[in-house]
Design a protein around this nucleic acid. Structure first.
Lengths: 297, 297
DNA sequence: CGTCAAATCGGAGTAATAGGCAAAAATGTC
DNA sequence: GACATTTTTGCCTATTACTCCGATTTGACG
């Protein structure tokens, strides 16, 4: 059981008994996972599913293009879209990072947004990733959710409701509009989102920016513009990163060899894959796998 | 004492009494050696130190990439950089190759160049190896040097001056500029030379072209370009040849075994070493050593 | 300060190389 | 002559090198 450094951190105390290893721990509640990391993790690219991430102890820092996103016990993360970005995690054996992640199920989201009605007049352009100041309401909701995780019975009977509470708080919060925009097609934003969704489903296929622009009903140049506004990278870059991250999973978790991984994510040229991989992650594919394996052993 | 075939070859007559075996003979003057070879030596890779080489009898032919460099009694060789190249020697028992080699001491060179002042306006790109037509001045200077070698007393009192004369003639000659460029950093040229120097000192270390390019303050592609311009091979090739030649010395002279030699010059994989050696020298390492030992016995 | 030419950079495809493993071959040893 | 050891070869995968080319920068000159 990881240690909780600070006294009086209720959430950390509740989470801590539930995890026993670094990384993501699943819970009895699908869509809810626990984060733990007892060491410093240098800035590295990764990809989160749309989710809410609440930090109980430690802190994280995300880099999306030129934006820096801090999250810590006083700020939770609203991740609306599954964007590739880079993340640095601050944790130590004495005070590991502890947190809880709640996946944003589109169906649930849609239902809730519709039920809540459209209190439109959107304050600002929706951000696909944003750090939001913690509120009392959210704090309470998360704490209740975390407590529920201790009992399998409570999970099955009350789990959905606990999750609902948390999401409700998020919808009320600063970034509620961003989530709303996801559900109610909101002009340009949702057209780009559709394209992103397509990329995520078919990342191994070949795409031309032109095709994508057509799909979004925009000219290539406007498409490029809006795309970059949201993802902070160009379409081609986005796809490349997506592929590389997927390939990394295949390499490190599914024990594919470099050939297979490269092919599986749509690379035609293995050398090209190797180079891109090295540029993005800092070291070439196989070496990376060896290191990772060495860490486990 | 080797025979001097042609009548009236003053230099050959002076040198000939000083040598009594094939190969390099050292003299009382450090940095000055005598060459003798009474048989034909097929084209084989080797590495000279920066030096002046004056042939008194017979001839040699150097191959540096696509360039051919002839040297014979009418042409002396100015070797500015220690480049791996290939060399064929024409000699026979009746008329062995005879020559004299004067090492180019960087300190001496530097001193002389500075003293002579920079008569810049460089005629052409400096060549790291070049054959220069013999001049009367050089002929005289070398002859005087050679005569001095006969007397240990003269060596110790006048040796330095005699060497100085020879180097002075070289500096005045066609390739003087190449030597000057060595001392006075000359933009790209000297940046590449620095890298070469590093390679020669640390040839057993691991290098990537990328690193080297950084050291030379160039992009990889530009680095490639300039490197090849000077050495007539690519960086990786150059390092490989350097290592193989060093390994050859260890094998043939220092009686290392193949393992040791391979490791000592930076090969991680012995099989790879064996392959490369064979490609470069025509036959695998051990066989080569055996042949060489057979020749001596 | 703008213009043109030359040098340089960075990307991408092709080719070559490194290094691992295993087996064959050669060598030295008893 | 059989065995143990060293060396060589073959094959395979992953990585790097090499080279060309378009884009960009640099630098000299007007």
């Amino acid at each position: 059981m990881p240690s909780t450094a600070q006294a009086g951190n209720a959430l950390a105390d509740v989470i801590s008994p539930l995890v026993n290893s670094d990384g993501m721990t699943t819970t009895h509640l699908s869509g809810v996972s626990l984060l733990c990391l007892s060491r410093h993790q240098l800035r590295t690219p990764l990809l989160y599913e749309p989710s809410l991430i609440i930090i109980a102890q430690g802190r994280k820092m995300g880099y999306l293009g030129d934006r820096e996103i801090h999250y810590d016990p006083g700020h939770y993360l609203v991740q609306t879209l599954p964007l590739p970005f880079e993340c640095e995690t601050y944790g130590s054996p004495a005070a590991p990072l502890l947190g809880i992640s709640v996946r944003l199920d589109p169906a649930l989201l849609s239902e809730m947004v519709t039920a809540m009605g459209d209190a439109s007049g959107h304050s600002q352009a929706p951000l696909p990733m944003a750090s939001v100041a913690m509120t009392d309401g959210m704090q309470d909701a998360v704490l209740r959710l975390a407590r529920a995780l201790h009992s399998e019975t409570e999970c099955s009977t009350m789990g959905a409701a606990r999750v609902r509470d948390v999401v409700f708080e998020a919808l009320k919060g600063e970034q509620g509009k961003a989530l709303t925009a996801l559900v109610l097609g909101h002009g340009n934003y949702s057209r780009i989102v559709q394209v992103l969704s397509r990329l995520h489903t078919h990342y191994a296929d070949e795409f031309s920016v032109e095709q994508l622009a057509v799909q979004a009903n925009m000219s290539p140049s406007t498409f490029h513009h809006h795309f970059k506004q949201i993802t902070r990278t160009s379409p081609a870059q986005y796809l490349k990163r997506l592929r590389l991250i997927k390939a990394q999973q295949l390499l490190l978790q599914d024990n594919h060899n470099v050939n297979q991984a490269a092919a599986a994510v749509g690379y035609r040229s293995i050398p090209q894959f190797s180079r891109d991989y090295k540029r993005y992650f800092g070291e070439p594919p196989l070496q990376h796998r060896r290191q990772e394996q060495a860490l486990r052993a």
